[in-house]
């Protein structure tokens, strides 16, 4: 498969939230989201309740996929940073560790330069957490450890969902 399954554990989830929480303050931004390239929201900090986070995640992933397609057409691997400027709010979108998307929403209280600078630093930290996460999943898979919640479900459990 092109992308192995993404599994998130409590410990790494906390570490990720710490990093993006700090980025939120340091970059003077309003909201920060982390989205899987397949469009699943991983986490968000800041004024998240103001937004339809699920839609935001799916559209961001679509956006990254479309610009990635454009990049390939002109012989680039990907465009790792996208910037959308609005009248009040702006979006800074970047790819972290080749597989997750970091979305920073900010207004005039911050600046593109500041956001870029802080994102760069946080991206490195996030990249190492995701690397750790991938290793952890791989090891668990190799050991065949059975904390996978779906290993023990029955056909009845599945049927009950649809009743």
């Amino acid at each position: 498969m092109s992308n192995p399954q993404l599994v998130m554990y409590e410990e790494e989830f906390q570490e990720i939230n710490d990093v993006i929480g700090r980025l939120l303050k340091e970059a003077n931004s309003k909201v920060i989201f982390l989205v899987d390239k397949n469009g699943q929201l991983i986490s968000g900090v800041g004024e998240t309740e103001r937004f339809d986070t699920t839609s935001l995640a799916s559209l961001t992933a679509g956006n990254i996929a479309a610009t990635g397609g454009l990049a390939k057409l002109i012989g680039e691997k990907e465009f790792s940073i996208l910037f959308h400027e609005g009248e009040k709010d702006n979006l800074h979108i970047s790819i972290v560790a080749g597989r997750v998307i970091l979305v920073v929403l900010f207004d005039s209280r911050s600046s593109l330069g500041l956001v870029r600078l802080r994102v760069k630093k946080s991206s490195e930290e996030l990249a190492s957490i995701f690397e750790k996460l991938m290793k952890k999943s791989e090891e668990k898979e190799k050991r065949g450890s059975s904390d996978f919640p779906f290993a023990e479900i029955t056909d009845d459990d599945i049927d009950n969902l649809f009743s």
Binding site: Q5, L6, M8, F13, Q40, I42, F148, P149
Partner: peptide, 15 residues
């Protein structure tokens, strides 16, 4: 691929 989040106890799948 599905995304399994143990922290928020969610499984997300794409159809």
């Amino acid at each position: 691929m599905s995304f399994i989040n143990y922290a928020s106890r969610e499984i997300n799948c794409k159809i």
